[in-house]
């Protein structure tokens, strides 16, 4: 059966920030290939023109007045945070700074 290479699966898993168990990789090699082959059909479709539909609405964006609205109490803002630290949100040290 047609399948993606291990590296290709690992690459898209990294883009999506999903770690994969050893036993999943093989399944995804097949699954992802099936889906990708399917969407490849688009290459054969001839479109009318280059115009793109980014949203189906025909109206233009209406702009908001520059006024300050309601804000969250910081306790409320922290309510669902898995790891908070005082009134900050805590994460493992960021690597790129």
């Amino acid at each position: 059966m047609n399948k993606l290479s291990r590296e290709e699966v690992e690459h898209v898993a990294h883009l999506a920030r999903i770690s994969l168990e050893e036993n999943e990789i093989e399944k995804y090699q097949i699954d992802l290939k099936m889906l990708m082959d399917d969407v490849d059909k688009i290459k054969d479709i001839k479109n009318y023109d280059e115009e793109m539909l980014i949203t189906p609405v025909s109206h233009k964006a209406e702009l908001r007045k520059d006024e300050v609205g309601e804000m969250l109490d910081y306790k409320e803002a922290m309510k669902n945070v898995p790891r908070s630290n005082g009134n900050f949100v805590e994460v493992p040290v960021m690597i790129n700074e």
């Binding site: 479109n47 009318y48 023109d49 280059e50 115009e51 793109m52 539909l53």
Partner: peptide, 16 residues
């Protein structure tokens, strides 16, 4: 470009 943007182009055509 190959997929998403082209899909949006065909989407526009389908709407038309």
């Amino acid at each position: 470009n190959v997929y998403y943007n082209k899909a949006l182009q065909i989407r526009d055509d389908l709407k038309k």
